[in-house]
């Protein structure tokens, strides 16, 4: 996570692997891709987990209500936390019990299962939001640069260079820190989520921009674009009707691969203490807290650690599968 954009930057940055599929008579691109995707059992598994995770995130609040879970409730009874040991959970596995299947956290005795569930929506919301933001900016500017070329391309490309030269994480921390108290009429959780989406999304767009620009450059010279142009189609029409649909594949693949990166990024910021603020549960925040107890309560860090790992892994599997399915050159 030290250089979070790297997955973002590189993975899809290997341009050879993301190239537009050639049309085959009779079946649409989507159909072919779907057939190929279905054959990839691991990717399908990843997809299923992703869907489950999204469901969990969306339904986190109802689930908590249904099972009576309260992620912020303190459980400090003497049989749960040992006051004389400085508030460590009692029992071998970080205080695991029927009441608290994943144990509780030290000092406050909050239920880790509830907190892990609560953390899911925060993580996914930030990751999706940031992905949408950077993909929107990246796509619009990338298409413009690629399609118009000339000075437009030069200006946009230079802007991307400048963005890529920024120490992203540093900026993210600085911005999140200074806007912590309140800004734009917001404060508390909504502000933190918004700031996170902004800093992660806004500084990541050039990666998307570069890919889209490259794709557009090659598409621009293709026959169907020439055809449309000779039929009198104007810039915007060509951009939106001819180019964009052909860019959906790579954008989709890239998004699926960007989401896990952004999840890691959010976790990293929360880990550094500048992301989501306690008492709101978030995976990165839990890890930040847990690492203080890595010697005496190592089970604690396993819960958020595994949650992040499984989520990111599932998205990566899905993304890999989608890329292979959309790329006729891969196996």
């Amino acid at each position: 996570m030290t250089a979070p954009i790297k997955t973002a930057g590189n993975e899809p940055g290997a341009p050879a692997t993301v190239s537009p599929a050639k049309k085959i008579e009779g079946r649409s691109l989507g159909q072919i891709a779907w057939t190929r995707f279905k054959r990839d059992k691991i990717a399908v598994a990843g997809g299923v987990v992703v869907i489950l995770l999204i469901l969990l995130a969306v339904l986190a609040k109802p689930i908590e209500a249904l099972f009576g879970l309260d992620p912020d409730a303190l459980h400090q009874d003497p049989d749960i936390l040992d006051a004389n040991l400085g508030g460590l959970p009692i029992g071998n596995w970080g205080g695991m019990s029927w009441d608290h299947p994943l144990g509780v956290d030290p000092l406050q005795g909050r239920d880790l299962l509830s907190r892990a569930i609560e953390g899911s929506w925060v993580s996914l919301l930030v990751a999706f939001g940031a992905t949408v933001l950077s993909n929107t900016i990246g796509t619009v500017l990338g298409v413009m640069a690629g399609y118009y070329g000339g000075w437009v391309d030069t200006v946009i490309s230079r802007i991307m260079d400048v963005f890529l030269a920024f120490p992203l994480l540093l900026f993210a921390i600085a911005i999140s820190t200074s806007l912590q108290g309140g800004a734009f009429g917001l404060h508390g959780l909504p502000l933190h989520i918004m700031v996170l989406i902004f800093v992660i999304g806004f500084f990541n767009w050039p990666y998307m921009g570069r890919i889209v620009r490259g794709q557009t450059l090659s598409l621009r010279e293709r026959e169907f674009v020439h055809a449309a142009r000779s039929l009198g189609a104007r810039g915007p029409f060509i951009l939106f009707k001819e180019l964009l649909p052909n860019l959906v594949g790579p954008i989709l693949v890239y998004s699926t691969l960007l989401i896990p990166t952004n999840i890691l990024f959010e976790a990293g910021l929360s880990f550094l203490g500048v992301g989501i603020q306690p008492p709101q549960a978030s995976w990165g925040g839990m890890l930040n807290d847990a690492i203080k107890y890595y010697q005496v309560d190592p089970q604690y860090m396993v819960v958020p650690g595994l949650a992040i790992f499984l989520t990111v892994l599932a998205f990566n599997l899905l993304g890999d599968g989608l890329r292979d399915a959309l790329d006729p050159k891969s196996n």
Partner: peptide, 8 residues
């Protein structure tokens, strides 16, 4: 490897 946060 790419799915594990370095702090974990």
């Amino acid at each position: 490897g790419v799915s594990l946060p370095v702090f974990f």
